[in-house]
């Protein structure tokens, strides 16, 4: 019920709607809950609505923390 997935906005449509790409599948969603969405943005889609924009910089920061943990767990061989 609360599951939501990131999708890339490929086209803005009238009536606060957009077409998004979900790993190759296109579907129409509502943008009624999020302002100022642009083509190329990633949004979190839940029951046909974008709940929020995904922040790519924050995603990179989190992934960098994960990469650091992995580097510590398996130090490169000399």
């Amino acid at each position: 019920m609360c599951l939501a997935i990131p999708a890339r906005v490929v086209e803005l449509l009238p009536d606060d709607a957009a077409t998004v790409d979900l790993g190759g599948v296109r579907r129409r969603i509502s943008l009624a809950l999020v302002d100022d969405v642009a083509v190329g943005d990633y949004v979190i889609v839940h029951v046909g609505y974008a709940l929020n924009r995904l922040d790519p910089a924050e995603a990179e920061r989190t992934l960098a923390l994960f990469a650091e943990a992995r580097a510590l767990a398996a130090p490169p061989q000399p």
């Binding site: 997935i5 990633y42 992934l63 994960f66 990469a67 943990a69 580097a71 510590l72």
Partner: peptide, 17 residues
Amino acid sequence: MKYLDEFRDGGLARGLA
């Protein structure tokens, strides 16, 4: 899919574990 696959990576999971 972008922003899903990266957060399911097995190598990173072992690093975090």
